[in-house]
Design a protein around this nucleic acid. Structure first.
Length: 285
DNA sequence: GCGGGTGTTCACGC
DNA sequence: CGCGTGAACACCCG
């Protein structure tokens, strides 16, 4: 699921449905993704849901927190008496299902399921003041919109990061240490929107090109927020419902299709930094 | 069967 | 140290 718009969508769901509730019991079905001591969670109230880049932090009233990364296929789905009849996407499966690894039993009968098909994700119980010792959070770069707990990525910072980097611009903007929250879908679509060749070195972009790219990152992510995220793989929101950005994707996954600009170009797929990279062979320079 | 997959991390080579 | 590559994690889908 996870790029900034999807993870922020989950955070908002946690804020709405989890904050103020007590986690009475933690049922660990598969210990792989769950690290730490359930005892530091059980009987404690959720006071805040925060996010940094693609990572989530659920703070409890005992100065412990749950640090969560859902990687590619993790899901956090909340059910209670009020929401149990809300339609559930088939991507959520049955609850609990084959890929349910942890169930948080909340007060008043609420349940928070952690599902993860590929088991790449993790949930760590950690003292709240130790969160920033987790290297993933410690090294997080500034992020677009400034909705996370770290610094906001401004145009000036973005241009400064690009101007210093000989790295190819697509892997560069996906480097979470440099910039937080951008993943493969939005990197591809933003580069297409800005008409920039993903293989160009970051520092080769002119000021107007880097501004165009910055604006494009904001634009594609704003569209995704409005659509509730992208459910290309298994992403669902806290109520187990899909987002719809994937029906708006511009070049991501469109190998062989005509360019959406109808300029006679064709979408090609190459690999950059080990990731599938999609671009129009006509308009991206 | 094979390739590909919204992510991160580590090992290794230059 | 910086940068790039490849593999690993695990499992589904077309």
């Amino acid at each position: 699921m996870p790029e900034l718009p999807e993870v922020e969508t989950v955070r908002r769901g946690l804020e709405k449905y989890l904050v103020g509730h007590v986690i009475e019991r933690v049922e660990v079905i598969n210990p792989g993704p769950f690290q730490g001591d359930e005892k530091n969670v059980e009987g404690h109230k959720v006071i805040e849901a925060r996010r940094s880049g693609k990572g989530l932090i659920i703070d409890l009233d005992n100065d412990f927190s749950l640090a969560i990364h859902i990687k590619l296929t993790g899901q956090l789905i909340y059910r209670d008496e009020q929401t149990k009849n809300e339609p559930l996407s088939p991507k959520a499966g049955s609850l609990p299902g084959k890929f349910t690894h942890v169930i948080f039993h909340l007060d008043k009968g609420g349940l928070l399921y952690y599902n993860d098909q590929r088991k790449f994700g993790w949930i760590r119980v950690v003292a709240t003041d130790e969160i920033m010792n987790i290297s993933f959070f410690k090294s997080m770069g500034p992020e677009p919109f400034g909705l996370g707990i770290g610094d906001e990525l401004t145009l000036e910072k973005f241009q400064s990061i690009l101007s210093k980097a000989g790295t190819k611009v697509k892997p560069l903007i996906m480097d979470q240490v440099k910039i937080g929250g951008i993943g493969n879908i939005y990197a591809n679509d933003a580069l297409w929107n800005a008409k920039i060749d993903p293989a160009r070195p970051g520092k080769s972009l002119s000021d107007s090109e880097s501004k165009e790219l910055f604006d494009s990152i904001i634009k594609v992510m704003e569209l995704s927020f409005a659509e509730g995220g992208a459910s290309e793989l298994t992403f669902v929101n806290i109520l187990g419902q899909e987002g719809n950005y994937q029906s708006h994707t511009l070049v991501y996954g469109k190998t062989g299709k005509p360019c959406p600009r109808n300029d006679g170009g064709v979408i090609r797929r190459i690999e950059l930094g080990g990731r599938g990279t999609f671009y129009c062979d006509k308009c991206q320079h």
